[in-house]
Design a protein around this nucleic acid. Structure first.
Lengths: 254, 254
DNA sequence: TCTTGCTTCTAACGTTACGTTAGCTTTTAA
DNA sequence: TTAAAAGCTAACGTAACGTTAGAAGCAAGA
């Protein structure tokens, strides 16, 4: 009545490879019901049911070791385990969603700008990647509401912002080293701050505070990477300084 | 100007472990800018930028080998690659969604039924898992519309159906071996067919056809696993046969 | 009965991206 | 000068098999 299948037949019937059956035998996960004197494995209908359990649990994302536990030591709170497993899967999906979102941003930028300086590009990916950590860090120094407000842009706004940023950074890198006081360099920096103001009206005060408090961004370089080399950074500092002084004069002059 | 960091400092600044830096050096992914006579590695700001690229691409799901290609052979269609990567991620997410859906069904069943015969449970998981393949197989023998109709239940309906099925299977297994013509056994089988009719009004004709055509379900056991042992299967066949004959008499008698 | 071809066996390495010792050398601080 | 800290290489471990390689068993035809 109960048939015996050679490993090849069993493999065909179940869709599981011979190698996998060998492996499951080796780790005591699924033992064939009978082994011939010459060492050949023969599987039964009962084995089919066992294998179905294994395949099902594997599909649900359990590692073989857990499955082994379940099958052998028969004290398992299945319900609790399934709930736990669901949480794990939800987390995985959330992570993948973040990656897809980043890819969307990246693709949007490429469509907008054509080709892109790869260093700038990677910096942006990095920023999107570390958004949450950046937020937490900023909350140490600024009111939480302000921080949330900065990051509280819609996907579309964020895409636009990133795209424009990339564009500006690209141009800035193009003129790096030139006279910091020159017309077109200052124009670029002006655009940059204009963009910042658009996103967050309190941008100027925020920069001011950063300077006043002498907050050591340098110690957290990995959180706020820039696409600029150290030389370029120094040059940029000069540009900004000049812009800053000039701006204040302007403001006062009004 | 351009600083040199010891591997420890570099690791702290970037958040990447020393071991990983060793590894990246080993596979020529990230070479330190300078190596002392005694063999110690020193990293530069330039290395930081390179590392940022690596980390970013890793975040986007690229394997190190692809990243290596990108960094060294500088002919990469970034846009196309990103699009491809997005497709990959979408697939992964779809797979995870299927698993989550299955877990939801399983949890729903547990809440409805309390504890469950694990064999029945696994069979159901297996069925949900192989839904699409089952559909394709059935389409070989039946009009596509009918097949689609059967599988075209809402999530909620499907949950209910599965839950009831589990309940019935459980009861059937409980009375397996008893007189196939007895009242309560026949009542269970009646419930079973009632359930089938509810889902798909043409269920009787479908079964009839299956019998007439002598379709070899046996060759595809892995597609349609049942929670019954061979003995139980045989007993079930008797029960169904009796029910079938009785039903026809009934129908004729009306 | 022998041979041929198919199936199965064990053993062992390869895969990915590092984590984790272990044992030894170099650098740094007291 | 010496002890502690940091760094080095080498090697194994991980998860779940895929992929040879070489030997042996098994069924069928000559």
């Amino acid at each position: 009545m109960s048939k015996q299948y050679s490993i090849g037949d069993f493999a065909k019937k179940t869709g599981i490879t011979i190698r996998t059956l060998h492996y499951y035998d080796e780790i005591d996960l699924l033992k064939p019901s009978f082994i011939s004197v010459s060492g050949r494995r023969y599987y039964s209908d009962d084995n089919m049911i066992q294998l179905q359990k294994i395949v099902s649990l594997k599909y649900l994302g359990y590692p073989l070791e857990k499955i082994h536990e379940y099958i052998h030591l028969h004290d398992w709170d299945l319900q609790e385990s399934l709930q736990f497993q669901k949480q794990e899967m939800l987390q995985k999906r959330a992570q993948i969603d973040r990656v897809i979102r980043t890819l969307d941003h990246a693709l949007f930028m490429m469509e907008e700008q054509g080709s892109i300086n790869s260093t700038i590009f990677m910096t942006l990916i990095h920023n999107i990647h570390n958004e949450d950590e950046q937020k937490e860090w900023l909350k140490n120094y600024f009111p939480k509401d302000s921080v949330e407000q900065i990051y509280n842009l819609s996907e579309e706004e964020l895409k636009e912002l990133n795209s424009k940023m990339v564009h500006l950074f690209d141009k800035l890198k193009g003129v790096a080293g030139q006279d910091p006081t020159s017309q077109h360099v200052q124009a670029l920096i002006h655009d940059y701050f204009a963009l910042a103001l658009e996103v967050y009206p309190g941008a100027f005060e925020l920069v001011q505070e950063l300077q006043d408090q002498e907050i050591e961004i340098e110690d957290n370089l990995e959180l706020f990477p820039t696409p600029f080399s150290p030389d370029e950074e120094e040059w940029l500092a000069h540009v900004i300084q000049y812009y800053w002084e000039h701006r204040e004069v302007d403001s006062n002059g009004e």
